[in-house]
Nucleic acid binder design. Structure first.
Lengths: 369, 369
DNA sequence: ATTAGCACTCCTGTCGAGTGAGTGCTAACA
DNA sequence: TGTTAGCACTCACTCGACAGGAGTGCTAAT
């Protein structure tokens, strides 16, 4: 059954009022503040109907009405008007992102910080998943007679390295050979693929092989691959939620903060979410059933996809938050696009652990000394 | 004025009782639980004296006594008996640290996790400060025609790298030359030293130089050096404090958690603390005036010094926590010592961001393709 | 010096009345 | 038939009174 125009108006008024004041809203205050041309009694009747339809709830008989998850869903889907950010806000976002534009991870982290500062909610940002990244080359660099660096470079310029300290000295020849062999073996294969095959191979490997240089390097190689597959997750503004009345009880606050302590689990869940702006309200979330989660995706070089999002109570300024997150992700994507010079990335683009472009590793390598 | 033996006994009893129950302790309960052979009335008199001397406080007339910071200080300095960990706890620590012993940063993080799990308080662990680390060599590695990797290797095997994406292609020759020049220029100098001189040089650099490959690489070089100087700080168990009655109020909890959000500031403060086990109680801390901070240092290869610590209310099991932190740091130091084979590091020692020895970069390299 | 006894303080929890915000129903009205 | 005014009713919240209890501090006896 569809809602009448007036019911929609009343519902919207209730949502706006409740979002602002966090207190059950009564018929009289709606009639006074938003002049809909009807009396409190009429509004009461409509409210009663809206409650019957599941859009409103009632903490107790003599209290005002509170919007339900269903009401917020309706609001987000149909009622909400697209909001435009003020020039000031836009400038703030652009400027702050530009500050660290040359450093990939720092930019991502700053985006999360910005998001929590502007929305006054908790936020997160993740570096792109690297499942489809392929190995470009592998290097073993000598540090001293027993220390060496294992370096894996992906086709997007993503680098991960590990310092290995052997208990017995290695020879330069063995190092060079292994370095070469590993690159030949793994080049062009995805991290995932290599990891799976290597874990199986390791499990069945013989002791003989383990005593060789390769035998000692391989476990580290596997671990380094695993590390390279992990996304970096930055979470910000967790103490913001203490300002909100819905988290005034220590138990609610605690439950909320525990999300932040289990980053791996959280990252996994976020990776599963669809691309684009996704809003999940209250019960629509698996856990955090009284929170709203708004996530969005940014693109690196049009290929890799990273996620960023806001976590707060279901009572939030949906219009503002989605507007901010949309502007922020488009700005981020712009930042990480180098092919069509956007002006945001004029001279140099650089990333500590990631970057754009499907790289080509076949250019001559040259030795450094 | 010195305390009598009986006063010390009573004070200790009050501290033990309060640490356990978090409630003001009365004369009667002391007389009953700890049979000191005197009546509640006598204990009351002693308590009154102890209060006068500043060891006890009194929330209100008809409440029991609460130990003051001064009492805890006395307890830690003279009353406290050294506690021995149970075999089970020792095994737990050793086993958990051994799990990740080959990965430096992971081990540090696990140490913090362990500390918070066992003490049920908040904890932190930091990687060693690298102020005195010298540059071993610098590498510029090609990824594709416009992407390259800048890699700085310290004398301890500490590696930091950054992926640079240029807007104009570079030549292999320029890359090799710059790589070589940079190594020759900076090798053997400390990170601090190079950073300072380079920042000054950059400020006065001419535009001409900026357009060269060197000009584009240098700002990233500086940033990467800065990154290399930063210690990694891991904080764990922050939600543990919600279990403690002293943090039942949302404001107290909030103030506490805000420490965790300003990691840089926190890291700086912790670096300033003396080596060894350091206990600062309540007012002895600059901020966090109603917390106790217990920190200790571990050693890497007998040279570098890292910090680890516990943060909790002044009411804590000082004996247990110091015992745990002592055992943990000695175990950590053992883990990171390779020269005298401790058995903890038999086959291979490896670290993502650290390692021993003053390296030599001049060994021949060999190419990968 | 120690202790029993006792008055006193002050926190805590409970109970009931009063208050106010808000609803739900009914009857009058346009 | 939809809208509105009026009114009774509900229920949370606040405040003061009161009792109970834990604990102190003082005094006098041992």
């Amino acid at each position: 059954m569809d809602l009448t125009e007036r019911q929609l108006q009343i519902l919207e008024a209730i949502i706006n009022d409740y979002v602002e004041n966090a207190e059950p809203v009564g018929s009289r205050s709606i009639a006074k503040k938003y002049n809909l041309g009807v009396s409190p009694a009429t509004i009461r009747n409509e409210m009663s109907d809206l409650e019957e339809m599941g859009y409103l709830t009632h903490p107790h008989t003599s209290a005002g009405r509170v919007p339900s998850d269903k009401a917020y869903r309706l609001y987000v889907n149909t009622l909400m008007k697209k909001k435009n950010l003020s020039a000031r806000e836009k400038k703030l976002i652009s400027d702050r992102l530009a500050e660290s534009r040359n450093e990939f991870d720092a930019t991502i982290r700053h985006a999360a910080q910005l998001l929590s500062e502007i929305t006054q909610l908790a936020s997160f940002a993740m570096t792109p998943a690297t499942n489809e990244e392929t190995i470009s080359f592998i290097r073993l660099l000598p540090v001293d007679e027993r220390t060496l660096i294992l370096m894996i470079v992906g086709d997007t310029g993503n680098v991960t390295n590990t310092t290995l300290r052997l208990t017995v000295p290695y020879t330069q020849e063995a190092l060079d050979l292994l370095s070469k062999n590993m690159t030949v073996t793994y080049k062009g294969r995805t991290l995932d693929d290599v990891l799976k095959s290597e874990i199986i191979r390791e499990a069945g490997s013989d002791i003989e092989a383990m005593s060789s240089l390769q035998g000692t390097v391989m476990p580290s190689f596997i671990r380094t691959l695993e590390e390279m597959l992990n996304v970096n997750l930055y979470m910000e503004g967790m103490t913001n939620i203490f300002n909100l009345p819905e988290f005034a009880s220590i138990d609610r606050a605690r439950a909320f903060l525990e999300i932040f302590t289990r980053k791996d689990e959280f990252a996994r869940k976020m990776l599963e979410r669809a691309d684009g702006v996704v809003v999940t309200i209250g019960d629509e979330n698996d856990s955090m059933k009284d929170c709203t989660l708004i996530t969005a995706t940014y693109h690196v070089d049009g290929r890799l996809v990273g996620k960023i999002g806001v976590i707060g109570p279901t009572r939030m300024r949906y219009d503002e938050v989605t507007a901010i997150i949309e502007y922020l992700t488009s700005n981020l994507s712009e930042c990480f696009r180098i092919t069509n010079g956007s002006g945001a990335c004029v001279q140099l683009c650089e990333g500590t652990s990631d970057g754009p472009h499907g790289g080509d590793e076949d250019e001559s390598e040259g030795d450094e000394e």
